[in-house]
Each structure stands twice: as C-alpha cells, then as structure tokens.
C-alpha cells in the first residue's frame, strides 16, 4: 500500500478526536471530519452514533436506519450533552473562540457568512473540535470578529463543567489547549510540516513544546478502510493537498463556511 497522503493523516487525526468518546453522537461538519467519524466508528470507537446528515441515525453501513433525529430532537440532544461536534471555522483565536457568522463589523459585515447557527449552544453544552482545511493567518487570528463558538477565556460561570474544546485539526497539524492559560498549543505536526511553517501560518503566538511529535501514521487497516470503503472516489484529496497552494481569500472564506454548520 502506498504511503499515506496528507489528507489521510487529516482523516485519522479527525477520527482521533472521538477516541474514547463512548456511546454519543459524533457530529462531523464537512468531508474530512465525516470520514474521520466514520473511521472511528469502524475501528476504535464502535459505540458512536452517526446521522445521514439529515434526520436519520444510521448504522455502520451508513444507510440502515437505527433511529430518528429531526432538528428539534437534535437540539435537545445537544443540550443533553451526549454529543461531540467537529465544526469548521472562518476564524479561530488562541483561546478557541470561533466565528462562522461574518467578517468585519457585524452591523454591516464586509463578508456575511452563515450566521451563528448552533455554535453558541454546542460550545456550552458538550465537547467541540474544529477542522480547518487550509491553515492560514486569516483563519487563525488574534481576535475573531464575532464570537460564535465560545473559547476558554469567555466561558460563563456554571458552564465550565460542560465546556471543552478537545482539538483543532488543520492541514498542517493538530492543536489542543493543554496549557496553563488554556491557549492553543501545537500538539503534533503532520509529517512533512515544520514548526516554522505552522508558526508562519498562524496569526497569534502558538504554544510550542521542545519536542513536538508527528501525527501518528494511519494503520494499514485504516488506510484500506479510507481508500476502499469510506472514500473510494478520493474526494478527500481535493479538500486537502499536501503542498498547499496559496489560496484565494474569497473562495477560501466560502469553503470555511461550507464546513462550518453548527447545529446539525
């Protein structure tokens, strides 16, 4: 089997956010997180629940219905806490505040995006992770223009027990908030990426340890699942390219918003 591509490292890194999650709903927004959630369910987290993207809970084959989850029940499930969502972000800051609503002044945005969707309710009620397909200073900003998903510096009293940002996965590496002041830390680099490259693509100072590990390799069984079962058409390779081209800011924003759905 040929060596894993960058996209395949990203799929596995996304799958890892649901390791040990138990019997909860995995709610991935966007292609790579969806592949990750389905991979986790087929391997190390078999008790996860998944939807068809609309109102049906589906079995491991991705089609057999095992339950009904229309929007109203989905939102109740969010508030009940048995869920871990992986959202996109048009902007993300060092404390994990996330923006999918608009860029610029909210009263008259320079770029109107999706709106807050379910990011506020998600972030105060259950574990949240983020997926950023193109790591750039425009996404990883000093301060987001509008807080949709709540970061570690803004958690209201009483919600600390439910608020948890597990990980941020980008096309360059994996990030967490395992620092004393709960700011973003480089947890692992995807093979082929350097600390310098990540730092240059991040619009705020990132916590970096002395010896940053590489993101783990996919196993042969995982690669087979990704390539032959979950994504035989290779759609993942169009979302993440190893030598990321300098991207157009306009189409980029739309792409980020595409994967940024919040409540479902």
């Amino acid at each position: 089997m040929t060596a894993a591509t960058r996209a395949e490292y990203c799929v596995v890194a996304c799958a890892e956010v649901w390791r040990g999650a138990g019997e909860i709903l995995a709610a991935p927004m966007g292609l790579i997180p969806s592949l990750g959630a389905r991979l986790a369910r087929r391997t190390f987290s078999p008790d996860l629940l998944l939807t068809d993207g609309e109102a049906t809970l589906v079995g491991t084959d991705g089609t057999t219905p095992e339950g009904w989850l229309p929007y109203r029940a989905h939102l109740a499930l969010v508030m009940g806490g048995k869920r871990h969502v992986m959202m996109g972000a048009s902007q993300l800051d060092r404390y994990g505040n996330q923006n999918i609503s608009c860029v610029g002044d909210w009263t008259r945005p320079a770029r109107q995006l999706l709106g807050v969707r379910g990011a506020p309710v998600n972030s105060l009620n259950h574990p949240v992770s983020y997926w950023i397909p193109r790591h750039a200073p425009r996404v990883f900003v000093e301060r987001v223009d509008m807080v949709c998903g709540v970061g570690y510096d803004r958690v209201p009293a009483g919600a600390e027990r439910f608020h948890r940002i597990v990980r941020v996965v980008s096309d360059l590496g994996v990030f967490d908030f395992a620092t004393p002041d709960r700011t973003m830390r480089l947890a692992s680099l995807h093979p082929g990426v350097t600390v310098e490259r990540v730092a240059a693509a991040t619009g705020f100072p990132l916590a970096v340890g002395d010896d940053v590990p590489y993101t783990r390799d996919p196993t042969a069984a995982e690669l087979r699942l990704i390539r032959e079962v979950l994504d035989p058409a290779g759609a993942r390779e169009r979302e993440v390219r190893a030598s990321g081209p300098v991207s157009d800011p306009v189409s980029d924003s739309a792409d980020s918003a595409d994967s940024a759905s919040g409540g479902s």
């Binding site: 929007y71 939102l75 609503s101 770029r111 109107q112 379910g118 506020p120 409540g263």
Partner: peptide
Amino acid sequence: RAARERGALGMTELDEAMFM
C-alpha cells in the same frame, strides 16, 4: 449576504437552540 453587506438588513441573530 448582499443585503447584509450593503447594510440593508437589520438582524436579531440567535443561536439555533435559542431560536427554537
């Protein structure tokens, strides 16, 4: 988007659960 970006649309922007 266009209406928001030309400042023509006032909004009460609510979270989905708040809306429900």
